[in-house]
């Protein structure tokens, strides 16, 4: 555990909590892509199956359970409790164009051809692109609530911090996981355009709206 890893995890946790609280407090999931949230629930489910097979640490187990629990709670709020506020017409990204290629790739390129390892690889690849329905939705409506941009910033920051964590681990522990690193780079790059808008607009007190 190093500082980048810890702050990355906390940033990820902050993102998840911000989104849950935003929906709960406003009693609305307007502007939130339910498809991205389903993909994240799928990511955590397929990644944390090792909860059943190995114990790493209390921290590890607790965080995995919190992430999974919050992911399903978010999906529940969007598709059940506050379904009336869900903006399905704008959430029109075709997720099969992500899930099918990612599934194929995880079978082809993995560390070990075993069910658990393939599912873990699937989750890593899927996470890298799971935000696309949300970004697509924002590009379609041309705007995002400020609280939604804070969520996206924390979520993007988390994987960027993990990149520094992997550099750290490579130098000090000789550890590297090429699948996680390549997918993590892809994931972080997808947020770059958003990071730019966040810094130049949201941090200066303006609402995030895209030019027509």
């Amino acid at each position: 555990m190093n500082i980048f890893r810890l702050t990355g995890d906390l940033s990820h946790l902050a993102a998840i909590i911000i989104l849950l609280l935003k929906i709960w407090k406003s009693r609305s999931c307007a502007g939130i892509s339910g498809k991205s949230q389903i993909l994240f629930a799928l990511v955590f489910t397929t990644r944390y199956l090792d909860l059943f097979t190995s114990f790493i640490s209390l921290y590890n187990t607790c965080m995995k359970l919190i992430y999974i629990g919050c992911a399903y709670a978010t999906v529940y709020l969007i598709y059940a409790k506050f379904r009336a506020t869900y903006d399905g017409n704008h959430d029109s990204f075709r997720v099969e164009f992500l899930v099918v290629p990612v599934g194929g790739l995880s079978v082809l390129i993995n560390h070990d051809f075993s069910p658990l390892e393939i599912l873990w690889t699937f989750s890593i690849y899927l996470e890298s692109v799971a935000i696309l329905p949300q970004l697509f939705m924002i590009s379609k409506t041309g705007e995002a609530e400020t609280i939604t941009t804070h969520y996206l910033f924390c979520l993007g920051l988390y994987r960027a911090l993990y990149l520094f964590n992997w550099i750290w681990r490579f130098y000090f522990e000789g550890f590297f996981d090429m699948i996680a690193i390549v997918a993590g780079v892809v994931q972080t790059v997808l947020y770059c355009d958003f990071f730019y808008l966040y810094v130049t607009k949201v941090l200066k007190g303006k609402k995030l709206s895209l030019p027509a």
Binding site: R5, D50, I56, N60, M63, K64, Y67, H111, W120, F175
Partner: peptide
């Protein structure tokens, strides 16, 4: 480092 099996990263 070992990368398969239980993962310590989240």
């Amino acid at each position: 480092g070992r990368v398969t099996g239980g993962k310590d990263e989240l």
